[in-house]
Design a protein around this nucleic acid. Structure first.
Length: 351
DNA sequence: GATTCGTGGCT
DNA sequence: TAGCCAAGAAT
């Protein structure tokens, strides 16, 4: 027997579901790619990346055999680059350990790098019709309102309450549609701000609506202040080439290439800071020349204002102390190297 | 349990 | 404008 909430939700979904590219396939690899790209990322942002990706890496094997730079370059602009490196590793593990076949169970999927509870459940339910509830930010918000749950976002209590309330509603052998219907409702109707309750297919069953607490659900935790750093970057020229450094594999922009530099410390001029950073990172001296530009950017946890300068060596050849690798490349080659937003802007400015 | 991971669009 | 938020995972 299908509960009323589920019946109305699925009927609404089948009539109103957006025609997203990954909804025209049952290919588990395609579903997996879409789910990883959609982590913390809007549908409209993902669509062009997804299409290019499936064209470039159409199956697990082609992804497994690609280079890390190729993979990161295809991901450039999507952010959270560990997703790309983990998906790359997952593809290699699937080839090596699963004979190139994507595991069908959430439990096995979750063992792969970059696949957590949500993505494992989403792929298992959508691609393999397993009975798995996939709780994402949309479903968390929808459940918080539907059942008027007082626990704050991020608390285990909210997820426990949401899961237990939703599991009894989940239709057997159709968890994929159930999950997607809830997410679709969250993305299109049950919006974070100013939800479209008058268009909601389950308004009559919504406890927050009945209790007048919709705007208070979900309860949000307080957020810390965002620091703002002044940083520098050096475009070091030598015989018509510029120096690029590959960032460490872990941490911010892991594995991406950049122009070396770093934070300005109290009492330092920008030029002094840059020269110091180059000694620390590359074990050599530079002459700081003309300013290329000022670039402002906001990361998740801090903001930066970056000052970039043309520079040239005033010492021995650099050594990669802080980077995985350094390379001298021509300006024309810059486009081949995966970079974060700021370094891409610098690259384009020196063309 | 708390932090750390990008970027772009929207208000 | 500055902050909010997005189909989360790893540490």
């Amino acid at each position: 027997m299908i509960p009323p909430l589920t019946g109305q939700l699925l009927a609404w979904y089948h009539k109103n579901a957006r025609e997203l590219p990954w909804r025209f396939t049952f290919d588990p690899y395609a579903i997996l790619v879409s789910e990883v790209m959609l982590q913390q990322t809007r549908v409209d942002t993902v669509i062009p990346y997804y299409s290019r990706w499936m064209n470039r890496f159409p199956d697990v094997k082609s992804l497994a055999h690609a280079s890390e730079d190729e993979v990161l370059r295809a991901w450039e602009g999507l952010g959270y680059y560990s997703r790309a490196r983990n998906l790359h590793r997952a593809a290699q593990l699937i080839v090596q350990m699963h004979n190139g076949i994507i595991p069908a169970s959430a439990e096995t999927l979750k063992q792969l790098p970059g696949i957590g509870a949500y993505t494992a459940a989403a792929v298992a339910s959508i691609a393999f019709r397993e009975d798995e509830l996939a709780v994402d930010a949309n479903i968390r918000r929808v459940a918080s309102r539907l059942f008027d749950l007082p626990d704050p976002l991020g608390s285990p209590a909210l997820d426990t309450a949401a899961r237990s309330a939703l599991l009894v509603q989940m239709p057997p052998e159709n968890a994929g549609d159930f999950n997607q219907a809830l997410m679709e409702l969250g993305a299109c109707i049950c919006l974070p701000r100013q939800p479209l309750c008058s268009s909601c297919p389950v308004q009559a069953l919504c406890l927050a609506y009945r209790n007048g607490t919709t705007s208070e659900r979900p309860v949000k935790p307080g957020k810390p202040a965002i620091p703002h750093f002044q940083v520098t970057a050096a475009v070091i020229w030598q015989e018509g080439k510029v120096l690029l450094a590959k960032r460490p594999a872990s941490g911010l922009l892991g594995g991406m290439w950049e122009f070396p530099g770093g934070k300005i410390q109290p009492g330092e001029t920008r030029q002094q800071a840059l020269a110091r950073e180059i000694v620390e990172e590359l074990d050599t001296e530079i002459l700081v020349g003309e300013q290329i530009g000022v670039f402002k950017h906001a990361y998740t946890h801090y903001k930066v204002t970056l000052y970039a300068y043309h520079c040239r060596l005033d010492g021995k050849q650099p050594i990669a102390l802080a980077a995985q690798e350094i390379r001298w490349i021509t300006p024309a080659e810059l486009e081949q190297y995966p970079m974060g937003k700021i370094d891409r802007m610098i690259s384009q400015k020196i063309q």
